[in-house]
Write a protein that binds this DNA or RNA. Structure first.
Lengths: 258, 258
DNA sequence: AGGGCCGACTTATCTGATAAGTTGGGGAGT
DNA sequence: ACTCCCCAACTTATCAGATAAGTCGGCCCT
């Protein structure tokens, strides 16, 4: 069996009572509780652990900080689906304290998505391929709509936004298609952090050097290789696409000024 | 500038007082405090935010859960260097709830370390190369010591342990040598989770199919390629090494019945 | 100068109390 | 019989005040 002694790392003797309780709760949550389930009430837990309600409260607050439960007045603590937030503190502090951190992140993203593409080529399911198709079609439609809007001198921004949404959707679908949930998780966490740090996908950096048609073509190349089951080609196509994007971002930054 | 509006995601209106305080503290910590610095005392914070000490306490406990500060009786809260613990909850729950998760993780690790090798080949510093050298030498010595111990019928386990420690040290040095801190961070986080989940590196799975000499040779190949600055070769050498390791682990699991 | 003790500061936890949400069920009305 | 509203029980959020216990710098004694 795989599920055996996966007990935690930090604080074995667990200096404080609150920490002990928190550890015990983590243990039961990770051990045998599903997202959506509720913890016992604070009063019950207090009785159970033979500590005051205050101590329980602090323990539960630690879990909330850790992203394991959701708290709301009047309701019991609810076990939460883990998400990328765990990591974003690290990423935010990295970016803040050093501009170079952003490029570390982009570099990682390139590597991660190259992996996604390779894995997807190896084992994408039919359903996953359809998601990728759908995103591609969305991008093509949005690009066309954008061109119409420009030609007719209408506001092209909504079409642009839709284009970038489908762009992101393609990358997400690919991460899912990779069949590796840790990769998908990391990708999501990173792209959230990046997107919320700056409004990257909105700034039309795709336009700087690459047209929408270029982007569509690049994605199509990835999708073709994935469908053909050609790992290496899929990886290389994705790497090339992202390296171009990175170049665009770099030039954007050097233009605007860091 | 890069350091601008990187404000957080979760809870904008921040339902509870404790959460508001926590958010504000996160903001100042991530904004302009360095690891090792202390927060004001609970009493001061209580006055400053015009809430009771309890509320401050809960906020600080959330930060502790989030891994941003360290708490100890008698001392003020100290800002912590962020580490990999942030996402180990996710990883642990992944492994627990599904044996396949472990292989997702290993697969990610392979990709990540392949990246490390490539990046290191591109830009390893002289100091980084020396760390790699040192780890290699440690492995060679430990392997030799191990052979002596076996030949003389002494207990070989300490030498074995040392060998695996240097093995890990090599991989860590490579992650550092990659010059990409996010990659290094992720690697650390993952290898901690893996190691503490099972005592992987201890179970002598290197012996199952690969001898210590094989391992040394594999590492040497990586190091040579890194020193030569050959990205592709470094990446491939690492991928090959880890793929072999993965095979060993898989066979170990199928033998034991995981 | 050095070592140990002490007091100021600070956190950890308890008790008891109040305000303010959530929720399920009972009763009124149709 | 069905719906809707409202209340009572439960539960969390926060406050106040108090005690135990740990840390740390400085003073005193040698």
């Amino acid at each position: 069996m795989v599920n055996q002694e996966l007990t935690d790392r930090r604080e074995e003797p667990a200096g404080t009572a609150a920490s002990s309780v928190a550890d015990a709760l983590v243990e039961t949550i990770l051990g045998h509780m599903s997202p959506g389930a509720s913890l016992p009430s604070e009063a019950d837990l207090a009785a159970q652990f033979a500590v005051s309600r205050l101590t329980i409260r602090e323990a539960v607050k630690m879990l909330e900080g850790r992203g394991l439960v959701e708290l709301a007045r009047g309701r019991r603590a609810v076990v939460r689906e883990p998400d990328g937030a765990a990591f974003s503190d690290f990423i935010v502090s990295l970016i803040r304290n050093d501009p170079k951190g952003l490029f570390d992140l982009i570099e990682l993203r390139i590597g991660l998505e190259t992996m996604s593409a390779r894995f997807a080529a190896r084992r994408a399911s039919r359903a996953a391929l359809q998601s990728l198709e759908a995103a591609m079609q969305g991008m093509r439609d949005a690009a066309e709509e954008y061109n119409f809007a420009v030609a007719e001198n209408r506001d092209a921004e909504p079409a642009d936004r839709r284009f970038h949404d489908f762009d992101l959707q393609f990358h997400e679908a690919l991460a899912t298609a990779s069949g590796n949930r840790v990769v998908a998780f990391l990708f999501e966490a990173m792209s959230n952090s990046l997107r919320e740090s700056f409004s990257m996908s909105r700034r039309g950096q795709t336009m700087r050097g690459s047209t929408r048609e270029d982007t569509v073509a690049a994605h199509q190349a990835v999708l073709d290789a994935v469908r053909a089951g050609n790992e290496r080609a899929a990886g290389e196509a994705m790497r090339k696409h992202l390296t171009d994007t990175e170049r665009d971002i770099r030039s954007h930054f050097s233009t605007v000024g860091g």
